[in-house]
Every structure is written in structure tokens, then in C-alpha cells.
Design a protein around this nucleic acid. Sequence first.
DNA 1: TGCATATATTAGCATATATAAATATTCTAA
DNA 2: TTAGAATATTTATATATGCTAATATATGCA
Lengths: 102, 102
Amino acid sequence: MKYDTEPELTEEQLTHVSQIFKALGDPTRIRILHFLLDQEYSVNEIAEKLELHQSTVSHQLSTMKKIRLVKSRREGTTIYYSHDDKHVIDLLTEAINHACHN
Amino acid sequence: MKYDTEPELTEEQLTHVSQIFKALGDPTRIRILHFLLDQEYSVNEIAEKLELHQSTVSHQLSTMKKIRLVKSRREGTTIYYSHDDKHVIDLLTEAINHACHN
DNA sequence: TGCATATATTAGCATATATAAATATTCTAA
DNA sequence: TTAGAATATTTATATATGCTAATATATGCA
């Protein structure tokens, strides 16, 4: 039996890649990330615009921040979020573009 | 309050895109898809090479087949699987490449 | 200090899903 | 038609996760 010559994935690669895809595998997180495509927004702005509970947005932002998909910036009591991984944004927009003409 | 001018994602786009990312968000499925990069393999070959239970491989292949990530071909009692969405393969390899130098 | 606003965290619930063992199905060959 | 091989399905279990309400924390201001 002959097998592929592709190099095996390392444990780290597997973990990292699946973590990112897992984060993108939820409609709510996709909506949030997509909303942050070109501009930063506060938690409340995101919640209002996307019609989500404040705690839901905060929670999902925190999960995305843990794996460096978004970053935050404080201004008084307000915290602005923006995306923090251009490559992930590229993956997302490519997937969306592909979903369009399909 | 001013909001982004990006077009809102449609329900269909959201569902489709999150479905694909969700499928890629599991290490076992990534290993299987990656193993199928350049060549088709039978269920047993995949199970042996990746050291997974036969039922696990069969189950994961069936979930990926449902959403057209893989396709199958029968030859006697053996069923060969291969990937069926070049674009998803591209997303995967891009993510892996990025994970390498990171 | 005390109050209001914005955000974060906690806890509970419901749902989803990954794995594995056991069983069933499908096909080939004798 | 019957046995064996390959794959699929069923069932059970454990784990993860998304959402919500409630509460906590942090900041700015009177």
C-alpha cells in the first residue's frame, strides 16, 4: 500500500488551524467579524446593529480575542474592537465570495 | 452613529460559509482532508494511516460528503474517497501555510 | 463618594457533536 | 446461496458550546 508524500501535519499546526476554523464556524462570530471588516466598533454598536444581546457580543468577542482574531482599544468606558488577523479576514472574505457565486 | 457600508451577509451566505468553516474546525476532519489532498483513499486506508477507528472515519467522511467536501467512488466492496471542493482545499492549504510561518 | 454607563463574567440550560462499540448493510467470490 | 470483507449505521456517552439572565467590574462625572 502506497501513501501520499505530503508531509504530515504537526500537532501544533493541527491545533492552530482547527482552532481558527472552529472560531469561523459560527454564524454569530462570522457576522461580527464581517461587521468589523473595515472599521472598529464598540460592543454596544455591534450588539445594536446585529441585533444581539450585549453579553453574547461580549462573550464572542472575548473568545475571538483569546485566539487573536480581534483586538480592543479602550476610550473611557467604551471599548472598541477591530480585527487583528489580516490572513483570517482574507480566508473569511474568500469564503464569502465563493459562497456568492455558488 | 455611522455604520459600515459593507453589504450585509444574506442568511444563505452565512449558513453556507459557517457550515464549511465548522466542518474544517475539527482536527480529525482536517487530517482526513489533508490526507486526501493529492490522491483518493479507501476508508480503511485512511483509518490505518491516520490511526483512527473505522467508524470514526466513515462517520466523518459522511458528514463531509453531506456538504460536498468529499465524494466517493465504489470499486467492489471498497469505497474510495477524494476531495470534491477545490476552493475548500485552497482555504485549508492557505490556513496550513499560514500556520507554518507563525 | 455616589451614580450612571459600558463592558465583562458567571451560572444554568439546551443543543450539538466527536468518539467508540456493536450491529447492519452491501458487495464479491466461491 | 453462503461466507467473508469493506463500509455504514445505530446507540450510548462524554464533552463542548452558544445563549440568556443576573451579577460584577471599570470608568467618567457630578
